[in-house]
């Protein structure tokens, strides 16, 4: 187990967005968080790299343990945390820089200056997301000129270059067409050999296709968390059953 939450509560001002969430994320597996809009699944994901800190008026209680470290600790080094736990966003968000500068961005901000190292890392990361052959002659083009699928792959490559351990993915395919979605899903299954992946998705079929573990959230509560097969065949909770059979949500 790589991340474990214990009685995690989160408030946006007076609104409680997460209620007593207990969850354990296993290494080298894909964990999917599903649930209707506003159930808190993205909020939960953003606890793991403390991106919620950017929102004013956020309070948290309980604990989130990441390899023996307390993520909620105010003293924690956010730079190291975010280097180890990377994030892919809903809309591909490459920077308005060249493809190469996008990939090596993380390394640059962490102080890497050696051109050789940067070039090797760029090739390795782009190869890992199967973009290198496509883009090896276009490394200096502006990343905003790529297709959406390529942009999302590039964002994943950008993460891989800083060698994280966990990849958080916040609805990574929602801006993509079905074919591009399939390709990104194949990539995720490939990536889980080396990384731990947590994905938020509103697409239940996607969760069923790619995840190993699955958690169902409703109104800030983690209703059920289990093996994906079990969630989708014999859910223990009536509310989960209602959601996955399409009676609700």
């Amino acid at each position: 187990m790589i991340i474990k939450t214990n009685k995690l509560n989160l408030w946006y001002g007076a609104f409680q967005a997460l209620i007593d969430v207990d969850l354990a994320i296993e290494r080298n597996r894909i964990t999917a968080l599903i649930g209707p809009s506003g159930c808190g699944k993205s909020t939960l994901l953003r606890v793991f790299n403390r991106m919620n800190d950017l929102i004013e008026g956020v309070r948290m209680s309980g604990s989130v343990n990441f390899e023996g470290k307390e993520i909620l600790d105010h003293e924690i080094d956010l730079i190291t945390l975010r280097k180890r736990i990377g994030m892919v966003f809903q809309r591909p968000n490459p920077f308005p820089l060249s493809v190469f500068e996008n990939v090596v961005y993380g390394l640059r901000v962490h102080g890497e200056k050696n051109k050789q190292v940067l070039a090797e890392a760029a090739e390795k990361s782009l190869s890992a997301v199967l973009l290198f052959d496509e883009l090896k002659d276009k490394l200096s083009m502006n990343a905003l000129g790529l297709s959406l699928e390529q942009q999302q792959r590039l964002c994943i490559a950008r993460l891989l270059s800083v060698t994280p351990e966990v990849l958080l993915m916040d609805e990574p395919c929602s801006a993509l067409d079905p074919f591009a979605t399939m390709k990104i899903e194949e990539l995720m299954i490939e990536l889980k050999k080396q990384y731990t992946i947590v994905i938020v998705t509103h697409n239940m079929q996607q969760a069923a296709r790619i995840s190993d573990d699955c958690g169902y959230l409703l109104l800030g509560e983690l209703v059920e968390f289990a093996d994906t097969k079990k969630i989708f065949t014999t859910p223990a909770d009536k509310r989960t059953e209602d959601y996955i059979t399409g009676r609700f949500g």
Binding site: L54, I79, G86, M87, R91, N93, F95, G106, V109
Partner: peptide, 26 residues
Amino acid sequence: PKNYREGSLALGATHWQTIYRVVLPA
């Protein structure tokens, strides 16, 4: 766009690095 900032911060960049490497070029 906010998502440039988020992308940069999520990679472990500091606020200042985000400003001069992403926000100002954008």
